[in-house]
Simulated assay, not measured.
Amino acid sequence: MSTFEDHRSLLTGVAYRILGSVADAEDVVQEAWLRWSNVDETTVDDPKAYLIRVTSRLAIDRLRWAKSRREAYVGPWLPEPISTEPDVAEHAELADSVELALLVVLETLSPLERAVFVLREAFDLPYAEIAEIIGRTEPATRQLARRAREHVQEKRPRFDVDKGERRRMTERFINASANGDLDELIELLSGEVTMVADGGGKARAALRVVTGADHVGRYLQSINTPESIARFLASIGMAETLGVSVGMGEVNNGPAIVISADGKVITVISLMVADGKIDTVYLVANPEKIAHLRPATGPAS
């Protein structure tokens, strides 16, 4: 295996955390490979540090461009879900620190703040090394890190981190939805629950954040009917598709509902739990963001 391939998964982890986009991360890593292919390896003392530096700089530049593009995005923008199933070897470096709720908060940081936060908190790089990557002095880099850390601590929701509890709540949610039991579904939701749906203008999804247990419950129940599924499939060019399935998958280091049709993932729903209730629902239906995912192999209940 080449030097670059030895570090590819690590570089993908760096780029994905900075960008929140699988496609953009893969593009950045490919560009890093092109640059590495033109380098005389014998002149590089520390290939790993060199590749992280190149990848991080490319990711920061890509994020600056992406932020302006996202201003014209249709509806709410969510990070691309990524599989963290144990058998997805190419994403081994993404097994930790890629929780969807954290990535959503990181979207509110500036590109430099986000890069510094990721490199320090997720990869524990020395401040001197991060300073060299971003082209700032070490004191300025420490200040960026402190500001980013305080912002994340302030904005990051206090969700339960117990995956077993999240899995149990997700199973109850699936059962309530499948049975059409609106009362049971609403009972699982906190009174102040919010739902963020990302269709990107390419699939049917709420264009604004939905709040309140009754509103969120009714919306989620409405998208689970045969008629609504048929309309959704038509919106993404799969009008004649049969064989819709619902399963449990491991997405962004947590249980998620993965809805598929004819072997293609059409919706991913992640539930965030706080104080025994579902507090936030993240729903991603933009086909460009979930095309890389595989249908769930786990049972829906």
Score class of each variant (00 low, 15 high):
Val29Tyr: 06
Val29Thr: 05
Gln30Tyr: 09
Ala32Glu: 04
Ala32Thr: 15
Trp33Lys: 15
Trp33Cys: 06
Arg35Lys: 13
Arg35Ser: 10
Arg35Ala: 06
Trp36Phe: 13
Asn38Ala: 15
Val39Asn: 09
Asp40Val: 10
Asp40Asn: 15
Thr43Tyr: 03
Thr43Cys: 03
Val44Ala: 04
Asp45Ile: 10
Asp46Phe: 07
Asp46Gly: 02
Pro47Ala: 11
Lys48Cys: 02
Ala49Gly: 02
Ala49Ser: 11
Ala49Gln: 13
Ala49Thr: 14
Ile52Gln: 03
Arg53Thr: 12
Val54Trp: 00
Thr55Ile: 04
Thr55Ala: 09
Ser56Lys: 03
Ser56His: 00
Arg57Val: 12
Arg57Gln: 13
Arg57Asn: 08
Leu58Asp: 04
Leu58Gly: 05
Ile60Ser: 05
Ile60Leu: 07
Ile60His: 05
Ile60Asp: 03
Arg62Ala: 14
Arg62Gln: 14
Leu63Gly: 04
Leu63Ala: 03
Ala66His: 08
Ala66Trp: 05
Ala66Cys: 01
Ala66Ser: 15
Ala66Gly: 02
Lys67Ala: 08
Arg69Tyr: 12
Arg70Val: 10
Arg70Leu: 15
Arg70Gln: 10
Arg70Asp: 08
Arg70Ala: 09
Arg70Glu: 13
Ala72Phe: 15
Tyr73Pro: 01
Gly75Gln: 02
Gly75His: 04
Pro79Asn: 04
Pro79Thr: 07
Pro79His: 07
Ser83Asp: 12
Ser83Trp: 02
Thr84Ile: 07
Thr84Gln: 09
Thr84Arg: 04
Glu85Ser: 11
Glu85Arg: 15
Asp87Val: 09
Asp87Ile: 05
Glu90Met: 07
His91Phe: 14
His91Trp: 07
Ala92Leu: 08
Leu94Asp: 06
Ala95Lys: 13
Asp96Pro: 00
Asp96Lys: 10
Asp96Phe: 14
Ser97Trp: 02
Glu99Met: 12
Leu100Thr: 09
Ala101Gly: 10
Ala101Ser: 15
Leu102Asp: 01
Leu102Phe: 00
Leu102Ile: 05
Leu103Pro: 01
Leu106Lys: 08
Thr108Glu: 13
Thr108Asp: 08
Thr108Phe: 04
Thr108Ala: 14
Leu109Met: 12
Leu109Ile: 09
Leu109Trp: 04
Leu109Val: 10
Ser110Arg: 06
Ser110Tyr: 03
Leu112Asn: 08
Glu113Ala: 01
Arg114Trp: 02
Arg114Lys: 15
Ala115Arg: 01
Leu119Ile: 08
Arg120Pro: 00
Ala122Gln: 11
Phe123Asp: 06
Asp124Ile: 11
Asp124Pro: 01
Asp124Val: 13
Asp124Met: 15
Ala128Gly: 15
Ala128Pro: 02
Ala128Asp: 14
Ala128Thr: 14
Glu129Val: 10
Glu129Cys: 00
Ile130His: 04
Ala131Gly: 08
Ala131Pro: 06
Glu132Arg: 15
Glu132His: 12
Ile133Thr: 09
Ile133Asn: 05
Ile134Thr: 08
Gly135His: 03
Arg136Thr: 08
Arg136Leu: 12
Thr137Met: 01
Thr137Ile: 07
Glu138Cys: 06
Glu138Ser: 07
Glu138Leu: 04
Thr141Asp: 04
Arg142Asp: 07
Gln143Pro: 01
Gln143Trp: 08
Leu144Gly: 00
Ala145Thr: 07
Arg146Ala: 12
Arg146Gly: 03
Arg147Leu: 10
Arg149Tyr: 11
Glu150Arg: 15
Val152Gly: 04
Gln153Val: 11
Gln153Pro: 02
